[in-house]
Simulated assay, not measured.
Amino acid sequence: MGMVLKKTDKLLFELLRFALDTTGELQGFKEAPSDAQWKVIYELAKRQCVRGVAFSGIKKLPENVRPARALLLRWSLDAEAIAGKNKLMDQEGARLTQIFDGAGSKNAVLKGQANARLYPDVLSRQAGDIDIWVEGGRKAVSELLYKLNLLTPETDDHAYSRHHIHLPENKDGITVEVHFKPASGIPFRNGSLQKFLNEEIRKAEKVPEGFYSPSIKFALVMQMAHLQQHFYSGGLGLRQYMDYLMLLRHSTEGDRSAAVAVMKRLSMMHACGAVMWLLQQVFGLEQGLMLCAPDRRRGETLLKLALAFGNFGQYKSKPKNVFVRWFKDRLQALSWLPFDPVNAIFKELKYWRATISLIPKRIKRRRIAL
């Protein structure tokens, strides 16, 4: 027996399908949702960071099927703000591209704004931050950011992660992550992943928005790896899966075949099958665009997480007691064993290694943390 969806979940899925349809085959809602249902749909769209796309669907609906005036106005203002943010993001992406081009460094915008331009309404995707890859590796990219005055000793506190450098938020509230690696790693086969990504990203092409966008083949592999790693942390909302739908709808058969060949080498097919099932159930992914057979059992795990905790798991409540939280986190980690044992075990070993290595420091500071 499969998972049971609420009526309002199904209505949001239907609205998003209608918004993203370019064939003219979908007609939207057969009957108008009640005012109470519309309010729930709005809140669901807010939790999933898909209000802009959902509003694109509302604009296509007949007036007698749309939400009540007050909610419609509120939603319209949200969509206008999202469109304005997208314009600022594209401008910032183009500005950074010009700066790095001027310094003679290859670069490309990853994920968010590169994905946004694939949507039927290019200003409807709710933006997060800008991810931009710059060639050269960690040391060279760090030195370049200092040289260009994009990073200073006063602003580099906690700026570095394993694969990118955070820049300070700009005057428009835009945050930027400068990647010295195209993506974070995956267990045991990270070298092969990085080799493929580093070779493929150099084929990025300039797009009308003023920045370089990687190939669809690159994005299919890189973003599946990105999704896979987030399964085990906070989880993902519908926005990230919707991005992947857009990639598939803009892919060629050659793109898909090449991406699958890489994913098989990297043991990513469990994740791939789960994502294909979710995309089919939520967005009506066409059979001919699937990378592999949909995996219902694993796909339901992803959909349950998305609906329960929203975008990047930000609606997940955490117990106040540190030991209760730690115990629940460990149970959550173990729950991924049937989904992908290699990743689950690797993540847990990595956690214990990091925890044990910090014990002497915590004893010295007389602090207990898990």
Rank of each mutant, 00 (worst) to 15 (best):
A159F: 08
D172M: 06
S184Q: 09
H164M: 12
T175E: 13
G210S: 09
S184T: 05
I186H: 04
R162V: 03
I165T: 00
K203R: 12
L193E: 05
F180P: 01
L197K: 09
N190V: 00
I186V: 14
P187Y: 11
F211P: 07
I165V: 11
T175D: 01
I186P: 05
T155D: 08
A204Q: 10
Y212G: 01
K203M: 00
E154M: 02
L167E: 08
P168F: 05
T175A: 08
R162C: 00
F188L: 10
H166R: 15
I174Q: 02
L167F: 13
P168A: 03
R202H: 12
V178H: 12
A183P: 01
L167V: 09
R202D: 04
D172W: 14
N170C: 09
H163C: 13
E177S: 06
G185W: 04
Q194Y: 09
A183H: 05
E200S: 13
F180G: 05
S161L: 11
P182K: 05
K195W: 11
G191M: 08
H164L: 08
P182E: 04
P182H: 08
R162F: 06
I201S: 07
V178A: 11
S192I: 00
K203A: 01
I186Y: 06
Q194V: 07
K206C: 02
F196A: 07
F211I: 02
N198L: 14
G191E: 15
E177A: 07
R189S: 03
P168D: 01
T175Q: 14
S184W: 05
I174H: 02
F188P: 01
H163V: 10
R162N: 14
Y212E: 00
R189V: 05
D156Q: 15
S213V: 11
N190H: 14
D157F: 14
K181A: 07
H163L: 13
P208K: 11
F188Y: 15
F211Q: 03
L167W: 12
L197D: 04
E200C: 00
L167G: 08
I186Q: 01
R202Y: 08
A159W: 08
R189W: 10
Q194H: 14
F211T: 01
K181E: 11
V178D: 10
K181L: 15
L197W: 10
E209S: 07
Y212A: 04
F180N: 04
L193N: 06
Y160G: 02
V178Q: 09
F211C: 04
Y212N: 15
H158L: 07
S213A: 15
A183S: 15
I201A: 02
K195R: 15
Q194R: 10
